[in-house]
Design a protein around this nucleic acid. Structure first.
Lengths: 218, 218
DNA sequence: TCCTTTATGTAAAGGCTGGTTCCAAGTATG
DNA sequence: CATACTTGGAACCAGCCTTTACATAAAGGA
């Protein structure tokens, strides 16, 4: 257990490990070796060991890793062992989808408040949450100890929403809007802009097709 | 214009450049320097120049880049100058959101077919698309020259759907499901699993808050 | 008990990608 | 014609990621 700098790539793999471990746990597998994990994840076993070793000595030589123990440990690392409250701004289709997804999630991370800038949306129900106006944001964040904000508004509104989140004292942001957001150093921001993902995916297609395909959907 | 290997990071920045350029274009800005772009994007100007130079000599010394010309070029690189047909499997909330988003998109990339594995969903309407059964997938992909598949099904169904897409001859996949998918070398797969993004975001929060939850940490 | 097998944790090395600095060359402007 | 500006490319640097290799520890069988 060395305490050097832990790179982002390592942190990004933790949720993947957790996913596979949960699967194994569901199948009541007791222990797993880095070798086996490596096959499942297409990763080098040494890398998995090294990743885990950053956070502690979780394995046993000759045996491997105890599945439930390792799950517990990774959940601690990712802070899933404590309740993390999340707020969402943008009660559109995507916002609905996330709230709905949230309902089925086992994690302690819960969307507990939804906001929208448009009066027409305010007061409507999503699952069992009532969409609130933006001027309730700051107060709600403070009172409910909300630490993460999700932005699912159109691009041109995103910066404004981000600013209000930051002003309210949020620690991290997950941005779905196709916009470049400026945030202070201390705010952690992750992007989940699928439009960019889709555009960059197109790059890797083979060029050539140019058939003037009339996209008539019949 | 050197034709070395172009890294993923470069390709991932192209959509971002495009976004900013479109904004400039809307404001009828004629030309822009890498310096100005760098400020807007928090990037080193040299990096922007280098990125663009991979694909050709788009700029003019002493002047900068012509905005509309550069937009056109990046669109060519990302193949947005041709129609790229997309199919989506999973007519749940997220699927709805994507289809709806798609409606407003200016890109030539269009979701032109939606499928679902569950009989209850089949036949329902999303925008102006009718949800089709999975056994129509292959035929539809072939007939409509669909090149990209989007997966918005629950994790446990994702691999199965991916296999069917691949069997139908898809070139690229965008996966929203929280699952590790095995695909052949030649299939390009991008992930947009926001749950992972959210979990890794939690890692970067300051530990400490323990609210009502018993810590139970030794 | 002892030997073999298995599998971890970590050090070390290597490779690769990504980013930055620097400069020559081209263009517009006065 | 001189100056200021800006690109494109070469070269350099840095750091991260990955892999290899090995010492160590545990379990199981003889």
């Amino acid at each position: 257990m060395k305490q050097t700098k832990i790179s982002e790539a390592v942190v990004r793999r933790l949720p993947i490990y957790l996913q596979v471990l949960n699967e194994l746990n569901n199948r009541e597998v007791q222990t797993v070796s880095s070798q086996e994990l490596g096959v499942k994840l297409d990763l080098n076993p040494a890398q998995i060991r090294k990743d885990l070793a950053y956070f502690g000595d979780f394995g046993r030589k000759g045996i491997g890793y105890d599945v439930t123990y390792l799950i517990e440990k990774i959940r601690q690392i990712l802070k899933l062992d404590q309740t993390i409250n999340v707020a969402l701004v943008g009660a559109g289709n995507l916002g609905h989808a996330l709230c709905n997804y949230n309902k089925y999630s086992k994690d302690n991370m819960k969307i507990i408040a939804v906001f929208d800038v448009h009066p027409s949306k305010i007061g409507s129900q999503i699952n069992n949450l009532t969409v609130m106006p933006m001027d309730m944001l700051k107060q709600t964040v403070e009172e409910n100890n909300i630490r993460i904000g999700i932005i699912t508004v159109p691009g041109f509104e995103a910066q404004n929403v981000a600013n209000q989140f930051i002003d309210a004292g949020i620690e991290g942001l997950l941005n779905f809007a196709p916009a470049i957001l400026k945030v202070p150093e201390e705010i952690r921001i992750h992007h989940a802009d699928f439009t960019k993902e889709l555009l960059s995916l197109a790059y890797y297609l083979e060029r050539e097709r140019d058939d003037e395909n009339e996209p008539n959907l019949d």
